[in-house]
Design a protein around this nucleic acid. Sequence first.
DNA 1: CTGTTAGCGCGTTCAA
DNA 2: TTGAACGCGCTAACAG
Lengths: 359, 359
Amino acid sequence: MRDLATLKDIARKARVSESTVSRVLSNSPGISDATRQRVLAIAQELKYHPNAFAQGLAKADSNILGVVIPRISNLYYAQLLQGIQEVAGDYGYNLVLCVTNNDTHQALEYLQMLKAYQARGLIYQNAFFLDEDQKGLEEVGIPAVVISRKIPEDRFYSVVLDEVGESRRATEYLLNLGHRNLAFIGGPLADPWPGQMRFLGFKKALAGYGLEMDPDRFAEGDWTFKSGFLAMKTILARTREIDAVFAACDEMAIGAMKALQSAGFTIPSDISVIGFDGVPLGVMCSPELTTMEQPIVDIGRTAMRMLHRLIQGGEVTSRQSILPCRLVERESCRVRLTSSHAYIDEREAVGEKRGAMEG
Amino acid sequence: MRDLATLKDIARKARVSESTVSRVLSNSPGISDATRQRVLAIAQELKYHPNAFAQGLAKADSNILGVVIPRISNLYYAQLLQGIQEVAGDYGYNLVLCVTNNDTHQALEYLQMLKAYQARGLIYQNAFFLDEDQKGLEEVGIPAVVISRKIPEDRFYSVVLDEVGESRRATEYLLNLGHRNLAFIGGPLADPWPGQMRFLGFKKALAGYGLEMDPDRFAEGDWTFKSGFLAMKTILARTREIDAVFAACDEMAIGAMKALQSAGFTIPSDISVIGFDGVPLGVMCSPELTTMEQPIVDIGRTAMRMLHRLIQGGEVTSRQSILPCRLVERESCRVRLTSSHAYIDEREAVGEKRGAMEG
DNA sequence: CTGTTAGCGCGTTCAA
DNA sequence: TTGAACGCGCTAACAG
């Protein structure tokens, strides 16, 4: 692996000084066309490419961007990355991938690393956005866009889904079907985002119809299939007068459907089920499940554009971009939770889901 | 964003020379415990982190790794990345993501960029492995592991699936069920890898049973749903004496099933269908479809381990790692090809698939 | 055990 | 229009 040609090599061969070469290659003005052409030709010939480290060191700058995410083994992150990458590529940024496994400490380490690399900006997502995340981001001082978290909106730039609004729309969809006895299976209420948001949207929709939530028809889950199954069981133990269910995520919606079916309900003629977040997780779709489809790729694109504007120092009209979702009916699907699912996302409690499925 | 503390800052404050500080921080031997502690304390206090560029420049070295892949918006690459990332993280490498969109020119640019960053190694996958890819990789001279392509095995390190062997096993599965009139829907035969490989495995299995391939029961597709559908139609136009179908990928298997159903076949009582590459694409699973499940995450892990050994200069026993697949039955699934699918992988001819699906 | 010196490849003064 | 000289932050070779 012979080393790359350097400015010096070109300078020697072109019989000019290094600084002249440097000027030519950085398109600085004040160079005669003759030497410019000559230098350019030789650079080409020598396959010159600037040493990124030397450049970074001298300019105290780079075109590196960090993408800090908890994981990449599922479609949500694949699509997010896709969106980020598309736009980043257009602007000529290089992406450094930082996978945290939801470990905030790890995330902070990555931030240091990015600082060491003079990263020009970063896109950040973590399971929860804790004080530590906030402090870390603020200390490192790199322009950042946070994705889809409950954050102090005045301190960070962010791209989020309109959780409340869309949750409300989803609920209204059920209400428009004529249903009035709605059950709600929520995420952990301890989770401000999106757990509480989706719950809030649900309640708002009810309020809009002059209804209020019936505690008997509410149960809390933890986003897993199993918890959805159990939550539905819990509700059914209290009342069977239910004509629709809104689950705060697809997994729980499917768990709920399983519970409903085993309780003798027919879906959808007896009951309608709707799930939030239609990330096409593949195994996660189910018959007659209506879901809010989230524009994940767009989140990535939007975040990246926002970041670019930040870096350019241009005006960013609002600190928060709110993306809408889309209601989708998935009629021709059945549930599958085989070992493949463990495969999709090994680090989640898949065993549980499967157990519940089979049980 | 105040700048980071440098060696000089520490040196001044600790009243030692920069090189002493450097030695302490790089754990070089021959430093008194007293100064070591003092320097360390001050480094901590100043939140010192080495400037990666300066380090890279001085050492002519980095801990950057390139991952060159055609795309990331689907599960295959998400899982590949996941596997790579897991192992890379353990070894402390930083991953730079290079998405080529199957553009070899783009890929070569990325190689230059990686060279500029003194990348220590790279993992490479492209749709086809052309002479240009080969030349590019050889010229750049960075330790590389190529994934899942037909390559000159003596010149590159690679991780591949045992396409021939597994294709043979899949076929034998059908033969063991007692089927003898097997149809084969292949990938483009112009595609050496894995198109020809999977075809070869099929023929080998037949040969093992003293059978040979019937040209009437063979048709070529291009990996898409639609092509599978059409290929099956073509075959059915020639003969309806078919008791099993082996399609070289899941999409085509599903297309074939659709054609079979519209031709009056019942699956699986009349006929068995098997598809290769059980990447859980989500929408791609189907009733009674048996597939070879590919250990994608393991490809990533294996490639990364191999690369690490290469970088370390250690002995790499074989230049090629061949991974086995696993036969899986996906019984409880139905096909779904809604707009969500376009979402999963926007850059593929989804319109066609959907059209075929609905038609 | 520690300090001095030189240089990695490039950008950016300041002179000429 | 060009060249010489310096410094970015760090490592490494050589002294002491």
